[in-house]
Design a protein around this nucleic acid. Structure first.
Lengths: 334, 334
DNA sequence: CACAGCACCGCAACCGATTGCAGAATCGAT
DNA sequence: ATCGATTCTGCAATCGGTTGCGGTGCTGTG
């Protein structure tokens, strides 16, 4: 239905080859004919069919983006960053939501791989081996996940946790609970590392409170256990969990931050809107998407992969102090 | 890099044509050869290049989805519905975020149109004329917007508003404020219609409080004006605005629902997590995405457009009564 | 045993674009 | 006027599939 290169050629009175050249290598065709072609193309609203071009050049101008769950506000932010940057480079993006399911993650990736120049996998749930395999046969950039030899953009989880702990320690907290997320979460593992390192440095006690779904409901489920530890502050796997904690604590009549302090991670929009407003470690989500696109496009352009393999960007988190943290309440045993 | 149909043909010892047929029209090739082809395809991990197929058949197996702003939790829900349904039909989806900008909306749509079989435009900001034009040359399904002759899935805004008003009236409210969203919002216009109809039926006074950004900040900005009207209840353009209202009212020491009741629209996840939990009209967001896909796929399949043109699905809203609405406080003049 | 009928498979053209190669046209110089 | 050097443009092959058409070989019947 849309105009083809032949339509333009006919209208401009030239051959399709000339049209192709006039539009993509302007300096190789006569100015006069180029103008005619341009005019014809405009008149017909012509834009080359990227799929066809892709067959020849091996470049479709499309990239794929895979996320675990759009319902988690973290991911739309990343998607937005990817979108924005892709548009700048005139690249279209395929989006796939895996619903946190490893099997469909892998199958979606395989299906997408054929029709894109590269893939951005955000917080993938697949195993290191599976990811390495995928990366071996496609251009892949990981976001919020590190796998040997695969370019990635990650957040400085350790640093973020250090900031959180330092803040809590300064407020007098000496016993801090950690409410974990999914067991297989890569970032979760690294947050724990940072937490322990900081706890050791500050000589503070850290208690781990199991693994919960990375959701509001997960936070509600974790709240009572977190309180039962006797900790005066709780650091949650992410903001959603933290907000779930807030809700359950409020329901139980436990005051935040007077009785207990709560810290989240991510700084999703909701964090600033919760009551009390949530103290959290802001992760530059949108930026991570932007950088991932740049990295991926560089990989695609560079015929020599040596320069890219292993490239990784690490983004710093930033503690946003709001109203969910305060000076430690007197513990039972001072 | 990935295996082509010729590779499979060579390995199976048949011609490419046979491979093509064996995989897509299984009953037309001998069972034995079909098995050989299948085995070869599996061994090579072959999947047909959709772009190439699209050139011949005119079907790429891709659809495009355009949304105004992923940062508004309303849209990720729709996207998720689209995703899920598209996957069921083995269709891939291009996503574009227009950042609420009409110009980029139009240009993105044009860019996408060439490489997809059809488009889903969610809450488009473009004019009726522009949309009609787009729909004339592509398969288009609108979500949350109605344009003459273009298939669409919409929400029953009038019905939703009736429910909200009936609820507030039952609680004794006689003067109700409406905090409007973007001036050009199609759904906003229809909500107002429903509001006035319901207000008339119940003999209740309705005050419109300007137009605000459909965001948390918009709600904060609107709060004082809404209160100044003397209304005992406020209906907001969407949940984000309602939650913004809640925040500002709380900051001013105005109690919800004791002093004033607040009703939102959408029922985004955040609505149930706010304090107080927000009474709102739940819109089946995800479902709207699913239905849009079905509609679009039907259009694409049906060579005779007559049966589809004008098709539209209307989804009912459902009032979720939570804690932000209560019996009307005594107005100054009883 | 001959021949009609059928199932199965391959040849070749095609989709919409890109690109190496070579021919045509223009120009300048001798 | 002839020739060589440039510049510009068209021809044709190509990408990875799909599909109409025709050919091959087998089966079954008279």
């Amino acid at each position: 239905m849309p105009a083809t290169i032949r339509d333009v050629a006919r209208l401009a009175g030239v051959s399709p080859s000339t049209v192709s050249r006039a539009l993509s290598l302007p300096d190789v065709v006569n100015a006069a004919t180029r103008a005619r072609v341009q005019a014809a193309a405009d008149q017909l609203g012509y834009a080359p069919n990227r799929a066809a071009r892709g067959l020849i050049t091996g470049r479709t101008g499309n990239i794929g983006l895979v996320v675990p769950d759009l319902a988690n506000p973290f991911f739309p932010s990343v998607v937005k960053g990817v979108q924005a940057r892709a548009r700048m480079h005139d690249v279209a993006v395929f989006l796939a939501d895996t619903d946190e399911d490893v099997a469909s993650e892998v199958s979606l990736v395989n299906a997408l791989a054929k029709q894109v120049d590269g893939l951005i996998l955000c917080s993938p749930r697949a195993s290191d081996e599976e990811l390495a395999e995928i990366a071996a046969e496609s251009n892949v950039v990981l976001v919020n996940r590190l796998v040997e030899g695969v370019p990635a953009v990650t957040f400085d989880n350790e640093g973020g946790m250090r900031q959180a702990i330092a803040h809590l320690v300064a407020l007098g907290h000496r016993k801090i609970a950690w409410v974990g997320g999914p067991m297989t979460s890569w970032s979760g593992a690294h947050r724990i590392i940072g937490l322990y390192a900081a706890a050791r440095d500050h000589d503070v006690e850290l208690v781990e409170v199991g693994h919960f779904a990375p959701t509001y409901e997960g936070g509600m489920a974790a709240a009572d256990q977190a309180i039962a530890t006797g900790a005066t502050a709780v650091v949650a796997y992410n903001d959603l969990v933290a907000i779930g904690l807030l809700a359950r604590l409020h329901a139980r009549g436990i005051s935040v931050p007077d009785d207990v302090s709560v810290v989240g991670i991510d700084d999703i929009a909701m964090a600033a809107m919760s009551r009390p407003a949530l103290t959290t470690v802001r992760l530059p989500k949108q930026k991570s998407g932007e950088i991932a696109v740049e990295l991926l496009l560089a990989m695609i352009d560079d015929p020599d992969p040596e320069t890219i393999i292993g490239t990784r960007g690490t983004l710093q988190g930033e503690l946003m102090v709001r109203d969910s943290t305060g000076v430690a309440s007197d513990p039972a045993q001072p």
